[in-house]
Nucleic acid binder design. Structure first.
Length: 260
DNA sequence: ATGCCAAGAAAGTCTTGA
């Protein structure tokens, strides 16, 4: 079962690029972030034409997440638990059936958090604490769970081209990295690092200052696996080439293959 | 120290992103 995460930076601007990637990469499941669309305006038909079931958690202008699956989406749940006052559309989850077993797939768009200090960084850290609590609850299912999305966290210096330029940024601050590690330390495996070591692997290149041409990237899109999912991991790759295509998102897809 | 680029809402320019 191929499961991908992709921050598309606006479904209206990215419908063509998304469909071209789906037709080539053919993921069984994809979680999308920054759809920047209300549910009613999401082009569900384009994806249904390609054989996907679709669930969205949209919001006007900003944020918004979606999940696509070749098999039916069961027990769909939207919103990260833990704060009834938080109305930002950043979390969606559903159960999908593989050939051999069910997988709980969560799609997340973790807050950026800049500028630091300030209310946006406070919100990021509070959101991560809520995610930690929910991730702990998901482990109790004792089933394959995948937490995929745009984490807006550069886990280590080797995950960016210019570590010094990120030193005081919300994506790389020690507090952000520690909050990310607390989720890992519950018992989750970061899929990419389970398969590939060393620097130079990125999932985002800024539109500005020729970041793509200079390979000035950062790795912030991650797939975390429960122990039952990690046991099934057979591959994890970054589809970096599409960053060079027409009208690209500033993020590229990251995907895993599970023997499920 | 700041802009660079892009998308969205909306009709000039601001907000957000990372």
């Amino acid at each position: 079962m191929k499961i991908a995460t992709f921050n598309i930076n606006g479904i209206k601007a990215r419908a063509q690029a998304l469909c071209a990637w789906l037709d080539k990469a053919k993921p069984d499941v994809a979680v999308l972030q920054e759809i920047k669309s209300i549910d009613e305006a999401f082009p569900t038909h384009l994806l249904e034409e390609r054989g996907y079931y679709v669930a969205t958690h949209g919001q006007k202008s900003f944020n918004g997440v979606a999940i696509l699956s070749k098999t039916p989406l069961e027990d769909v749940s939207i919103g990260l638990p833990g704060d009834a006052e938080d109305h930002q559309a950043r979390w969606i989850e559903a159960t999908v059936m593989g050939d051999t077993q069910a997988v709980r797939v969560c799609g997340l768009y973790l807050p950026n958090g800049n500028p630091v200090p300030g209310p946006k960084y406070d919100y990021k850290l509070a959101w991560m604490a809520r995610m930690e609590a929910h991730a702990r609850d998901l482990l109790a299912l004792e089933m394959p769970v995948v937490l995929g999305g745009d984490y807006n966290v550069i886990p280590q210096d080797e995950d960016c081209a210019k570590p010094d330029s990120w030193r005081k940024d919300a994506l790389a601050l020690p507090q952000s990295r520690a909050a990310f590690r607390r989720i890992l330390n519950l018992g989750y495996t970061e899929a990419f690092r389970a398969r590939t070591q060393g620097p130079g692997h990125y999932s985002f290149w800024d539109y500005q200052a020729g970041a793509w041409q200079r390979n000035n990237g950062i790795r912030i899109d991650h797939l975390l696996l429960s122990p039952q999912a990690a046991d099934l991991l057979t591959d994890c790759q970054i589809d970096k080439e599409i960053r060079g295509y027409e009208r690209p998102s500033d993020h590229v897809p990251v995907w895993i293959d599970l023997a499920a």
